[in-house]
């Protein structure tokens, strides 16, 4: 049975909460929802932006009782440069697998002068789909399907930002 956890499920202002059967923590700030172009994601208070997962901020989900497989995850407001005078943004995703240990992956929104297509590169498995474009009016939303391939003994997953 696939369980879906959405950004709107995170209570603003907390930093440690069981949501959808996983233990979620944020550090060093607290959960903070942000809605852009109709997509609500959870970020973390403090840092460069007060409502996104910034460099040196970490959102982590841990399972103490069972390992799991990840059918998909979706990230928002991962832009690629000129919309907000920003860089090609990079998300780092780290998993801990019982059989394979710690594995680190990156999602980079690669700049496209003309969109569509709007593209991003993922160092893991599966496919990358753009759900909302990387434009000033868009949400720069990316869905990664089957991101870790057949790894099905994951016990934690952590999201943080890298320098773009």
């Amino acid at each position: 049975t696939v369980i879906t956890i959405n950004g709107i499920d995170f209570p603003n202002g907390l930093n440690n909460q069981t949501i959808g059967g996983l233990s979620w923590t944020s550090s060093p700030g607290n959960f903070q929802q942000k809605t852009v172009a109709g997509y609500t994601g959870v970020g973390i208070t403090g840092g460069r932006t007060g409502d996104e997962i910034d460099i040196e901020e970490f959102l982590t989900a841990t399972s103490a009782s069972f390992p799991f497989w990840v059918p998909s995850f979706t990230l928002g407001v991962l832009f690629d440069g000129p919309e907000f005078d920003d860089v090609q943004e990079v998300a780092q995703v780290t998993i801990v697998s019982l059989s394979q240990g710690t594995k680190v992956f990156k999602l980079t929104n690669t700049y496209d002068a003309i969109i569509p297509p709007d593209t991003a590169s993922w160092t893991g498995f599966g496919t990358v789909t753009n759900l909302s474009p990387s434009t000033g009016a868009g949400g720069a939303v990316w869905k990664i399907t089957n991101p870790f391939g057949s790894i099905n003994d994951i016990t934690s997953i952590e999201f943080t930002a890298l320098t773009g």
């Binding site: 879906t4 994601g41 930002a161």
Partner: peptide, 14 residues
């Protein structure tokens, strides 16, 4: 760089 988590799907493995 900065972003939000919009959704995570997982499936427990017995």
């Amino acid at each position: 760089s900065d972003f939000t988590l919009v959704q995570l799907q997982y499936e427990p493995v017995p």
